[in-house]
Computed example of a mutant assay.
Amino acid sequence: MKSLIPVILSSLLLTACASYEPSQIGLNPTLGAVSLQTESDTQVLIETIDTREASFVLRITEGDKAPQLIGTTEPMRQQLDKVFRNGMIRAGYVVDPAARNSVQFQLHYLLADVTDTTFSFESQTRLVINVLAKNAQQQFTKSYNANGYLKGPLSPDFATLELDINQLIDKLTTEILNDDELHQFIQR
C-alpha cells in the first residue's frame, strides 16, 4: 500500500503538468534591416496605437472544445512602438513630439488561428498595420498586410508559434520602414 501512494501522486502530478495551458505568449519583434532614407534630420512625431477589436493574438481550436484565447506578456502596442521608433531613427529621422510631420502606426489586426488535431496542427496568421502620415498640407494613408502559414506534426509548441508570429511581424515592419512612398511623403 505504501508503494502505491507515490505512484498515484506521481501520476497525478504528471497529469496536472500535461494539462497546463499557458495563457500568454511571449512575442519579441525585432528591427530588421532599415535603409537610410534622409540625411537632413527631418523631424517627425511617431505614435503607435492598437486598434484591434480583441487583445489576444493566438486562438487555438481543438475539436469541439471552446477555443483557447492567448494574449501577449507585453502589450503589442509597446513592442511595435519600440520597433517603429528605432526604425525611423535608423532611417535618419529625428523623433520629436513637437514635430510638424507625424506618422501614426495602427495595429489593426494580429491573429494566429491554430487548428489542433490529434496528429497535426495548422496555423494561419494574419497581420494588418495601417499607417497614417500627416504634414502641414496633406495626409497619407496606407494599409500593409502579411499572412503566414505553418503546419506541423502533433500539437504546436509555443516556441514555434512565437517564432512564426515574430518573423511575420519583423517582415511587415521592415517592409513599412523601407517603403519609399511613405518616406517621400514625410520629406515633402
Rank of each mutant, 00 (worst) to 15 (best):
A66T: 15
L14H: 12
L80N: 04
T174D: 03
G71D: 09
T125F: 06
I49E: 02
T118D: 11
N101V: 15
Y149V: 10
M1T: 13
L27S: 08
D164L: 05
Y144H: 05
I70S: 12
F121S: 07
D96N: 11
L110K: 00
Q167E: 11
R85G: 13
A16F: 03
P29I: 05
E181Q: 08
R77M: 12
G63E: 01
T38H: 04
L127S: 08
N86H: 06
Q184Y: 04
K82Y: 00
P75Y: 05
G92M: 09
Q106W: 03
A133R: 04
Q138E: 10
A99K: 10
N147R: 13
T15I: 15
G152M: 07
G26C: 12
L111K: 04
T72V: 04
S123I: 06
E74G: 02
Q106C: 07
S143L: 06
E62S: 11
D113L: 02
G71C: 01
H183S: 08
N101K: 15
L163T: 07
F105V: 10
D81A: 07
G92V: 03
V131M: 05
T72S: 15
I89G: 02
D96G: 13
A33W: 04
L36V: 14
G87Y: 01
L45Y: 03
A66L: 10
L172D: 04
Q138G: 12
S23A: 07
M88R: 12
P6V: 03
S11E: 03
I46E: 07
F84C: 09
N101T: 14
L163I: 10
